[in-house]
Amino acid sequence: MRRIAARDNAHYKALLKLSQSSRERRKSGHVLLDGMHLIEAYEQNYGSIEEVLVSETGARRPENARYLEGRASLAVTLLADTLFDALAVVDTPSGIMAIVTPPQPVRGLAHDGDTVLLDGIQDAGNLGSILRSAAAAGFRQVLLSEDCAQAWSPKTLRAAMGAHFQLDIHEHSDLAAFLALYRGHSVATVLDGSSSLYAASLRQPLAWVFGSEGRGVRPAVATAADQRVHIPMLGSSESLNVAAAAAVCLFETLRRRQVTCP
């Protein structure tokens, strides 16, 4: 087990860059998973991880200790609590992280399957929440435009709660080009959409398009969709948070299809 107690340690400096810089994550091809839930979800779907990071306090927690005892050959780095906390993305750190290679989509773009398209979603928390809703509603393919928040950032991973490992995520996608080739029915959510969500055609296969927190779906992307809808609201609010809007639309799709869930 490697122990690090100083901020000027070269390996720790690399870890700090990995936690804070999207450029570094792309350059290194690695990401940090924060917490046992994400670590176990990754191992269940993709096998072994590359390195585990634990804080001095985290190493003494029963759940983390049991995990480490069962993996004697795993590379483990023990960090002083203050160093570990500086890597964490939450106020109450879990005490354990892992370095992994993010999985690539299992296949190329499918133009005939249920898909979620995200146009310029800036907030990592919103992005993670949408990924979580997409996975829960049975959508497996997600496309992110060039200017979306990074799908594999620590904050997005934390908000998605393991949904990444149930999805094919395609970053830096040309959404309008995808819609032009899509062989199903595509629906964009816009405030002035001519149709209500509850009157929209949600037949399979279906591509939902959700836009950024400020500008919404860009006109070039919205016009490429087959249908533009709005979510009816009775209150005085002008719009919903994009993560809430996506959840409403995705689960209305699930309800309409009358999928029986256990």
Results as ranks from 00 to 15, higher is better:
residue 21 S to T: 02
residue 247 A to D: 05
residue 206 L to V: 07
residue 183 R to Y: 09
residue 258 Q to P: 03
residue 63 E to C: 01
residue 52 V to W: 01
residue 233 M to R: 08
residue 160 A to F: 10
residue 47 G to Y: 11
residue 200 A to F: 01
residue 66 R to A: 10
residue 18 L to A: 04
residue 52 V to H: 01
residue 75 A to V: 14
residue 104 Q to T: 11
residue 79 L to N: 02
residue 196 S to E: 13
residue 13 K to M: 09
residue 129 S to L: 07
residue 201 S to E: 12
residue 204 Q to I: 04
residue 84 F to V: 03
residue 116 V to Q: 07
residue 177 A to V: 06
residue 6 A to K: 12
residue 254 L to P: 02
residue 123 D to W: 03
residue 40 E to T: 11
residue 31 V to T: 15
residue 74 L to V: 08
residue 123 D to E: 11
residue 39 I to L: 14
residue 109 L to Y: 11
residue 50 E to G: 05
residue 16 L to T: 02
residue 194 S to F: 03
residue 8 D to C: 05
residue 78 L to D: 01
residue 181 L to E: 13
residue 222 A to D: 05
residue 74 L to F: 00
residue 167 L to W: 00
residue 168 D to G: 03
residue 98 A to C: 04
residue 86 A to K: 14
residue 230 H to C: 14
residue 216 G to K: 11
residue 209 V to S: 13
residue 172 H to C: 04
residue 54 V to Y: 12
residue 177 A to F: 12
residue 195 S to K: 11
residue 35 G to C: 11
residue 220 A to G: 13
residue 26 R to Q: 10
residue 97 M to S: 05
residue 245 A to H: 12
residue 187 V to W: 13
residue 235 G to I: 01
residue 121 I to W: 00
residue 138 G to D: 05
residue 252 E to Q: 05
residue 145 S to Y: 12
residue 238 E to Q: 14
residue 14 A to L: 09
residue 204 Q to P: 03
residue 12 Y to K: 01
residue 244 A to D: 10
residue 75 A to D: 15
residue 134 A to M: 06
residue 206 L to G: 09
residue 144 L to V: 14
residue 22 S to P: 06
residue 6 A to I: 08
residue 224 A to K: 01
residue 141 Q to W: 08
residue 102 P to M: 04
residue 30 H to T: 09
residue 158 R to A: 08
residue 227 Q to W: 14
residue 48 S to G: 10
residue 42 Y to E: 05
residue 262 P to L: 15
residue 139 F to G: 14
residue 104 Q to C: 06
residue 121 I to E: 13
residue 182 Y to T: 09
residue 120 G to K: 04
residue 72 A to Y: 13
residue 45 N to I: 13
